[in-house]
Amino acid sequence: MTFISANLQAVRDRIRLAAAVAGRNADSIGLLAVSKTMPAERVRDAAAAGQRAFGENYVQEGVDKARQLAGLGLEWHFIGPLQSNKTRPVAETFAWVHSIDRLKLAERLSAQRPADLPPLNVCVQVNVSGEDTKSGCTLEEAPALCRAVAALPNLRLRGLMAIPAPADEMTAQREPLARLRQLFEQLNREGLSLDTLSMGMSHDLEAAVLEGATMVRIGTAIFGERKKPQGSEQ
């Protein structure tokens, strides 16, 4: 067993235990392995251990990995901040984008999605902690943005994503995640039929599961600590 397969098993065990505490079915919680800055061979190792969905933050790195590993049948999710001038390769390569925070971005992805591919699955990113340094629309802006995105062709609005401010204590971790869940429930009551709450990372996986996450994004707990890439390419 490789260290990546052992780590994957440990993360899956954490999900199962958290789901049991929450009274949920663990199968309702998807695991997205965040492979940003990791070499393609580590992704290949994770795939050999049964992982199929991978998250990337940097456009060119993600596109290169998707092409290199095209024969493995993997599902690629773009989860980082996205510049408007870099939407085309994302629209052409990825199955999901979690980081929609403005309508212009969604409109470009919709226009650039190839006709021979299924609609691009997207989530609206919400800045639930109100941090100046974080991407995402505000809680107040989110309903209008979600409705506008849902109306675009070639996209399928699946749900909401958030990256809350780090916190060590469970109650503090759950508070911003609860705000996202409440917004998710509100939008569903208003008829948007969302099915995805993309929230929870290595440090707050349990809190996210307790608050209803349907997809957790785990990097460090699977691949180990990573080095920040040179430059600021997104």
Rank of each mutant, 00 (worst) to 15 (best):
P81K: 09
P81E: 08
P81R: 08
P81F: 03
L82W: 03
L82M: 02
Q83G: 05
Q83R: 03
Q83H: 01
Q83Y: 00
S84H: 01
S84T: 14
S84P: 01
S84D: 01
N85W: 12
N85F: 07
K86S: 09
K86L: 06
T87R: 06
T87Q: 05
T87S: 08
T87D: 03
T87N: 04
R88P: 09
R88C: 08
R88M: 12
R88W: 11
R88S: 14
R88N: 13
R88I: 09
P89L: 00
P89R: 02
V90E: 09
A91I: 06
A91V: 02
E92L: 14
T93V: 04
T93R: 05
F94S: 00
F94D: 03
A95S: 15
W96K: 03
V97R: 09
V97F: 02
V97D: 05
V97A: 06
H98N: 11
H98Q: 15
H98I: 10
S99K: 05
I100D: 11
I100A: 10
I100E: 08
D101A: 01
D101R: 00
R102M: 05
L103I: 13
K104T: 09
K104C: 00
L105D: 02
L105P: 03
L105A: 10
L105H: 07
A106W: 09
A106L: 04
A106H: 00
E107M: 01
E107G: 10
R108K: 15
R108H: 12
R108F: 06
L109C: 05
L109I: 00
S110P: 07
S110T: 10
A111I: 02
A111T: 01
A111R: 07
A111S: 14
Q112I: 02
Q112E: 15
Q112W: 05
Q112D: 09
R113I: 07
R113C: 06
R113T: 11
P114Q: 11
P114L: 13
A115F: 14
D116N: 13
D116K: 08
D116P: 13
L117R: 15
L117H: 14
L117M: 14
P118H: 09
P118L: 08
P119I: 14
P119D: 02
L120A: 05
L120R: 02
L120H: 07
L120T: 04
N121C: 14
N121V: 07
